[in-house]
Amino acid sequence: MKVVVTGGAGFIGSNLVRALGEIGQVSEIVVIDDLSTGLLDNLLCVPVRLVRGTILDPDLLDEAMTGAASVVHLGALGSVPRSIDLPLPSHHANATGTLMVLEAARRHGVRQVILSSSSSVYGANPVLPRDEGLRPIPVSPYAVSKLAAEAYALAYASCYDLQVLPFRFFNVFGPRQAAHHAYAAVVPRFITAALAGDPLRVHGDGRQTRDFTFVGSVTSVIVDAIVRQVATTDVVNLAFGVRISLREVIAELESILDRRLEVVYEPPRPGDVRDSQANCSRLLELFPTVAPTPLRAGLEQTVSWMSGHVLAGQ
């Protein structure tokens, strides 16, 4: 089985291709990545073929997708703050890019397209936990672009009989997550600051909550979906219904590092939601054997990886 992974040199993608390389059912892995946010180092010693370029290039997509059974579309321009600063690039990469990938999959008769959406589409909807039937109220260009991407996927499933599986990710963290840029996610920012002895900067009071999901749990679900060729007629939350505050994350890091961490509180950022928590009933119906990684175990693995890579300048 040939699998194509867009954004395969990025955080989730590089963890996924490692997991795919360990199963016998996958005979060929092709990564599409323009390396604008991904890293070549993330693919070291991984049995993949890299097609370097943008998902907005139809010829490049044709080259990569010939003979593919499944496509995992992770290529995106992430970050709510980045989308507020740069709304048009966010739309082009996330909405138009998804449409280009779906069209290429249709041209080449790909059986299955798995793609990443985001919990940010729920936005200002106050209901917790968030089930997939809730009305999305996106409050950032990034959230709008992700909502458009999943809507395109479901429309292609309806119009062209394409098997799709749109996942809404909730605050995924783990090894290989970028830390040294202006739009870095909160967990790698916290760990990098803690390891360097710098203060941890929190936007808001730190009591805002997220459904933090370890990347290994995410990749195990996607691998299972590819092996069993799982598809749906609606979106699926990929998180486990655990509501954790930023202050609790900081307390866990203090325990792991065995020292107090300095914390600086700053004003909340535009576009950030106050609380997030998944209803995971649909996920567990499709993947009844999936087991989430506890926060402490996930943070320990992430700290261990970042200690040997980020601070070493790798």
Rank of each mutant, 00 (worst) to 15 (best):
S220W: 02
A95R: 11
V4W: 00
R269G: 10
N42P: 00
V72W: 12
P270Q: 06
P175M: 15
A231V: 01
I23A: 14
D57C: 05
K2E: 12
D59H: 10
L99A: 11
V4P: 01
S116W: 05
L74M: 08
Q112Y: 06
F169L: 15
L253F: 02
D41S: 13
A179G: 15
G38F: 11
S304E: 14
A182Q: 14
I12H: 09
P268S: 09
V310M: 14
V139W: 01
N237S: 07
L99F: 09
V4F: 02
R247S: 02
V235L: 07
V235C: 07
N125K: 04
K146P: 00
S117I: 03
Y160W: 04
Y142E: 12
F212C: 13
L295Y: 05
G123V: 02
P129L: 12
R243Y: 04
A193S: 15
V3F: 01
L295H: 03
H203G: 09
R106V: 00
A64I: 03
R259A: 05
A93L: 11
I222L: 03
G21I: 14
R52V: 12
L86R: 05
V215E: 12
Q163E: 07
L286Y: 07
L257N: 03
G204T: 14
G13V: 13
A193P: 06
R207A: 13
G197L: 03
C159W: 00
F212M: 07
D131Q: 13
R135E: 13
L60F: 07
G53H: 09
G241R: 04
A151Y: 00
L60G: 15
R18G: 02
C159R: 12
R259Y: 04
I250Q: 08
A291T: 14
H92K: 10
S117V: 02
V235Q: 01
L39N: 05
Y265M: 12
H180L: 15
Q25G: 08
S90D: 14
G67S: 10
G298R: 03
E262H: 07
P294F: 11
V17T: 11
D57G: 06
P268Y: 05
V249P: 02
L299W: 04
I114M: 04
S116R: 03
S83E: 10
A291G: 13
P294G: 09
T219M: 06
A153T: 08
V303Y: 01
R52A: 07
G197S: 10
N125S: 09
H73T: 08
L128F: 09
G216A: 04
M100L: 00
T192E: 15
V113C: 00
F214V: 11
V101M: 00
V72Q: 07
